Simulated assay, not measured.
Amino acid sequence: MKRPALAATAVLFAVGALLTGCGSVHGSDGTTAGASKPAPQGASTAASEAQQKYRQQAEQAAAEHDRAFPAVAQACAGKSTAVPTAAAPTSSSGPQPENPKYAENHGYLKTTELSPLAQCRGDAHAARLAAELARQTPADAEQAKALLARLGYPEATVARAGQGVQFSFFVPQVGPCLSGTLSNPPHIEVHGPYVEGGCEASRGGH
């Protein structure tokens, strides 16, 4: 009754022999020629543990966001977390800009790419905020701060600007950034954090 198990074991050993023996060339240090040396087991284990910890933290943060904003979670269920790959820059022999370092000097204005899930969350939070502003437009920064805190964005920054109030905040736990002006009508932008950090652009380039 144990013959099938023995036969399976024999097959496994035979496959192992084929993989490690036939046609392989070994170097003087015992490694297979042409194959890269494996990373030290300790480093590999540490990297794996770090990745697992990061995934657990991300899952916990997403769960906390979804409990706080169930309507947003429902609207964005099933969206991908994959960030689109940016197209490679193409070279051109045509006319060059007046200042060829313009892009470099204004790199501080670049924001990180958003995944479909992050974009959906941002749009849903922007719609929430716009709906509230249709009922009540804050008259000053203090009222704007109170309104944003009541909606679940207590860390928002606000400042009086012209006929409205400028604001900026990172959607709690998961992002993305929302910024703009709380006025009538409001102006709300959804974007990733700036490459130099935060949801507000630095005041000047380099």
Rank of each mutant, 00 (worst) to 15 (best):
L6R: 10
A7W: 05
T9K: 00
V11A: 12
L12W: 09
F13Q: 07
A14K: 06
A14I: 14
V15N: 09
G16C: 12
L18N: 08
G21D: 03
S24W: 09
S24C: 08
G27E: 14
S28K: 10
G30V: 11
G30Y: 09
T31P: 00
A35G: 00
S36N: 00
P38S: 07
A39D: 03
Q41H: 03
G42H: 02
A43H: 06
S44R: 12
A46S: 01
E49N: 07
Q52Y: 04
K53Q: 13
Y54H: 10
R55H: 01
R55V: 04
R55S: 02
Q57K: 13
A61S: 12
A68H: 04
P70M: 01
V72C: 05
V72T: 15
V72Y: 00
A75M: 06
C76S: 01
G78L: 12
K79C: 00
K79A: 04
S80W: 03
T81A: 12
A82V: 15
A82R: 14
V83A: 02
P84K: 04
P84H: 04
A86E: 15
A86V: 14
A88V: 10
T90H: 14
T90R: 15
T90N: 13
S92D: 15
S93K: 13
G94A: 13
G94C: 06
P95E: 07
K101W: 08
Y102I: 05
A103W: 04
A103N: 08
N105F: 06
E113R: 09
S115K: 07
P116L: 10
L117E: 04
A118R: 03
Q119D: 07
C120V: 03
C120T: 03
R121E: 01
G122N: 04
G122I: 04
G122C: 05
D123S: 10
D123R: 10
A124V: 00
A124Y: 00
H125V: 11
A126I: 14
A126L: 11
R128T: 15
L129V: 14
A130N: 05
A131E: 04
E132I: 00
L133Y: 01
L133A: 03
R135F: 05
R135C: 04
P138C: 07
D140E: 14
L147G: 00
L148F: 14
L148S: 07
A149Y: 08
Y153G: 02
Y153A: 07
A156E: 02
T157R: 07
V158C: 10
V165K: 01
V165P: 03
F167Q: 08
F170T: 14
F170E: 15
F170K: 15
V171F: 05
Q173E: 14
V174K: 09
G175P: 11
P176A: 12
C177I: 06
G180D: 12
T181L: 15
L182Q: 09
N184G: 04
P185S: 07
P185V: 06
P186N: 02
P186M: 02
H187T: 15
I188Y: 01
E189M: 06
E189H: 08
H191A: 08
G192D: 13
P193I: 03
V195K: 01
V195Q: 06
E196L: 13
E196R: 08
G197F: 07
C199G: 08
G204W: 13
G204D: 15
G205Q: 11
